[in-house]
Write a protein that binds this DNA or RNA. Sequence first.
DNA 1: GTCTATATCTCGATAGAC
DNA 2: GTCTATCGAGATATAGAC
Lengths: 209, 209
Amino acid sequence: MAKKGQKTETELRLFEAALRVFGDKGHYGANTQEIADQAQVTKASLHYYYRHKDDLYEAAFEYAIGKVSENLYTHIQEGMSAEETLRTFCDRVIRFYHDHPWLIKMFIHECLNGGKIGRAYIVELGLEEGKPLSRFIENINRAVERGEIRPVDPYQLFFTTLGSCAFPIVTQSLFSSLFPELREDPSAFLLARREHVFETIYFGLTPSS
Amino acid sequence: MAKKGQKTETELRLFEAALRVFGDKGHYGANTQEIADQAQVTKASLHYYYRHKDDLYEAAFEYAIGKVSENLYTHIQEGMSAEETLRTFCDRVIRFYHDHPWLIKMFIHECLNGGKIGRAYIVELGLEEGKPLSRFIENINRAVERGEIRPVDPYQLFFTTLGSCAFPIVTQSLFSSLFPELREDPSAFLLARREHVFETIYFGLTPSS
DNA sequence: GTCTATATCTCGATAGAC
DNA sequence: GTCTATCGAGATATAGAC
């Protein structure tokens, strides 16, 4: 059922509730009762469509990775300069995770749980020709070759960029009690990061640049 | 008991086991049976020293924050240049979390759970005069004033630096199946980040700088 | 397909012997 | 202070009526 093309209306409600609840609380923190409640069905119905909790979780995680791929990586076009690539990536990551924080939370939850379930689905982001992540890596490598930017490990740069963008969204609940700007207007702070992260990474902090 | 000065040997074993298990699995993922097993006592003994699971978790989290403060922030001295501040911070964060990944995992788990319990303890990192985080912020502000670096929001820079350093350690379990360098020699990749992160943030990517 | 009712299991916490 | 035994809440999952 979960895999077949068309979902019934009930199944769709279950699936969307699962995205919200798993996204918010992760695999362990979520419970089937809450998912059933949000979908306005009973637990028995939930188990009718998805035999085990894990089946529902896997379906949700696979869908989430697809959404991430679609919203973050497809906007990085082959042949973009490093500047365009980084600008686009910062903008998409921060806007997307700002609007859908449960997606990055689901991902981080899965990381903390050892990635046992998610590992099978993350290959969709792969590095092979044409896959989403490969365009980021390729664009950086080309930019180094033609001297737009200094030599840099594109994998390291990927983590630096994604980490800079995603980390404040993940840690907001704790750091907001410490940082006045983040506490008073989280959206403004997070959206201001699009410029900050791009400029810091691309131009650095030294005034000469 | 937990708060008093001297811990008995059994209590110490329990506490250290709690650090490991909570650190690895977070508040919800951890269970008291596993902590008791690792401490080689029964659950009943665990509950003798710590009435509720939450008491043990709070003690562990408070201790963890103290460790983080002690190992990351005390090495940032008042009056350091921005260059020294960032170099020191990258070096300490990556080395420390590389050696003790459960500490950053515990922190992120708490963030994902909404920070309800940890919020009370994170104020120890505060921004007030003399508190650990204030030195980072102050050093950056001074560096801007005297023109060492261009104008930058020190709070934004804090997230950029910490996120760049911590994110790969947190997400290693999932991204290692995607990035060959990270999979084949995680330590080398993570330790190489100390230079990469500092140079990317301080000097940027543009070759002119 | 959806429900009520329930089986089964896991976990935090307690009682009481020693 | 540590143990065995057990309680009771809450979770996943199933049985069977409709």
